[in-house]
Amino acid sequence: MNPIEIKNVYKTYTRKRFLSFGKREETPVLQDVSLCLKENHVLGLVGESGCGKTTLSKIILGLEKASSGQVIVDGKEISKLTKPAFKKLRRLMQVIFQDPYSSLDPRMNVGQIIGEPLDIHGLYKDKLSRRKILEELVKSVGLSPEHLTRYPHEFSGGQRQRIAIARALALDPKVLIADEPVSALDVSVQAQILNLLKEIKQKRRLSMLFVSHDFAVARFLCDEIAVMYKGRIMEYAPAEELFSNPQHPYTEALFSAVPVPDPVRQKKREAVSLTARPGMENHPCPFAPRCAYVCEACHTAPLLAQVRPGHFCACAALPFKNKKSSFAV
């Protein structure tokens, strides 16, 4: 059974419009999103800020409600569950956030932070066994038992993210939802945390939804990748397939913008221009204003269609797109 399936999810935020007498402004944030997280796989959700990545994570965690569509966790559709049933299911899914500074309670020591989920669910026999579980947990994330009595402010960003991971692992979840877990970390520390996430995924046979805006990081960790733009999935494929055969003009543009650490090659590369052309805001394809390939074919809304085995792409111009790809790294 797939740990998470998302089917045709839409989400619209409504708010009262400023100075317009009760008129409501509707912001569509997710549109027809369908994804599947397979067992012991890492599904990458990649896109620029504001495209809806965190909103989708929140919907899966039950922190937000989808406007329509289905979210199926462990075979159960979450909107149909009673509160206690959802609570039980929710234990299978744990989350790690981007900012390790605001996500840990500064008044609690590391032992209390990591032990809290255990306490809430009463998951140990006695004090001694609680201590043992905690020691195992801190060791599994590369910290030592002495750290249990210390407070968050005594730790660097990377160490705090290890603490957050240990807490997420306390209930032995099946699924980790990691929302940009390394984006706030320095390069040298980022690599450590990525290695750790990969290791625990393999050792614990976890499944992971990995939210990121960084393709290089996604390539390292993910088995499948979904590229999101303005709340829609533009391309969805096994990771290696995506990197060897990017199809969508947006994916291509994103790849071309990733800096390459080589002065000779980087100076020769040409980033695909992504400047929005005005007057195209209502185009059926959300990417059209920035797209280098927009043509006659784009006048219907593009649907996610299989373009190669297991590889889906939402671009109406694809058959006409010049195959001389501008993606060269």
Partner: peptide
């Protein structure tokens, strides 16, 4: 070494141990 490459899939990143 610890820069993550978009050009290839690595099994393990050669990270710098420890903290700043």
């Amino acid at each position: 070494n610890s820069l993550v490459s978009i050009n290839k899939k690595e099994d393990l990143l050669p990270a710098i141990a420890g903290n700043p």
